[in-house]
């Protein structure tokens, strides 16, 4: 059924319904981390180029969200959290979501190539492919490590931002990638420990179900330890500096403490205080990511005044 002939439709989708396909909340995180990656780079860009680059990275991320909603419409309808999304609620046709996703993916990749450079465009294309195909279509429903895979897709934006400015992938870009990549599993699995989710009804394997809760607690600790290593290593590179080091030292100490407490507990203890430790760990994880990237941004913002990084000490 084409748009023009579809007069019988009860509900006329608004622009907002199509916008909702792009997962605006995920997009806002993408904008923030990509902008930090771009501004932390030692190569300045023109403000118009910065605006265009961030916009098209965000549109690319949104397009992969639309493709994900098209592919996952069946399980989104089963789960309470996602049942109100545009496709399961009937506001947007699946075919429309696919068309929006494919069209915006192409637009975003081509325009990022023109606004920034071809490597950034290629990375954006890979990110969309990775999220829509490798994560959504292939691994999400077949392995409890799906969170790790999905986290990789979320970790690309700061690297793409960095590449927009510099044209190359350096250690700083990899460390910003690692920061989000290693952060995602403990962040999400902490949530999975205290949130009764209906992933099981939808047939999506979750670590808490497939390997049990004690195994999930072990996983959280291991990822948090590696996360701390990468987060502190970043302090020694050109995106780091005394402010970043101070922020990272405090946050990683707190995060490690939380992960160890989670690891030491069992379900009886957790249920006794209604998952207080897991809940506070999850809240801290939100602050953790925001403040790390905030500190990287602050170091970059102070650079023009001679105070960013390690050079001025």
């Amino acid at each position: 059924m084409t748009e023009a002939t579809d007069l019988s439709r009860d509900y006329e989708p608004t622009l907002g319904d199509y916008f909702a396909l792009l997962k605006p909340r995920v997009m806002s995180l993408v904008v923030f981390t990509a902008l930090v990656g771009l501004l932390a780079a030692p190569v300045p860009m023109h403000p118009v180029e910065i605006f265009a680059s961030i916009l098209f990275i965000a549109i690319g991320a949104g397009a992969s969200g639309a493709l994900n909603m098209w592919w996952d419409a069946d399980i989104d309808a089963v789960m309470r959290r996602t049942a109100k999304r545009p496709i399961p609620s009937g506001r947007v046709e699946p075919g429309e979501a696919l068309a929006v996703g494919v069209a915006l993916s192409g637009l975003a990749v081509v325009m990022l190539g023109l606004a920034a450079n071809l490597l950034a465009a290629a990375l954006l294309a890979f990110t969309i492919f990775f999220y829509a195909v490798v994560y959504s279509m292939w691994l999400k429903r077949s392995t409890p490590q799906n969170i790790v895979i999905g986290g990789a897709a979320g970790a690309f934006p700061p690297m793409i931002g960095w590449v927009c400015a510099t044209g190359s992938v350096t250690i700083e870009a990899w460390l910003m990638f690692a920061l989000i990549f290693m952060w995602t599993p403990p962040h999400f699995w902490a949530l999975a420990l205290f949130m009764r989710s209906d992933y099981d009804d939808a047939g999506v394997p979750m670590l808490t179900v497939t390997h049990g809760r004690p195994a999930t607690r072990n996983h959280i600790l291991v990822y948090t330890v590696f996360l701390a290593v990468f987060a502190l290593a970043a302090a020694a590179t050109s995106i780091g500096g005394p402010i970043y080091l101070a922020v990272a030292a405090v946050l990683n100490a707190l995060f490690l403490k939380g992960a160890i407490e989670i690891w030491r507990r069992d379900e009886v203890q957790a249920e006794a205080d209604d998952y207080a430790v897991e809940k506070s760990f999850f809240k801290l994880s939100l602050l953790y990511l925001f403040l790390h990237f905030g500190a990287i941004l602050l170091e970059a913002a102070l650079r023009p005044f001679g105070y960013g990084g390690w050079g001025w000490l």
């Binding site: 023109h46 118009v48 180029e49 605006f51 265009a52 023109l114």
Partner: peptide, 10 residues
């Protein structure tokens, strides 16, 4: 407007 501005800048 964005494409025009980008072109102008470049």
């Amino acid at each position: 407007v964005l494409v025009f501005s980008l072109t102008f800048v470049k």
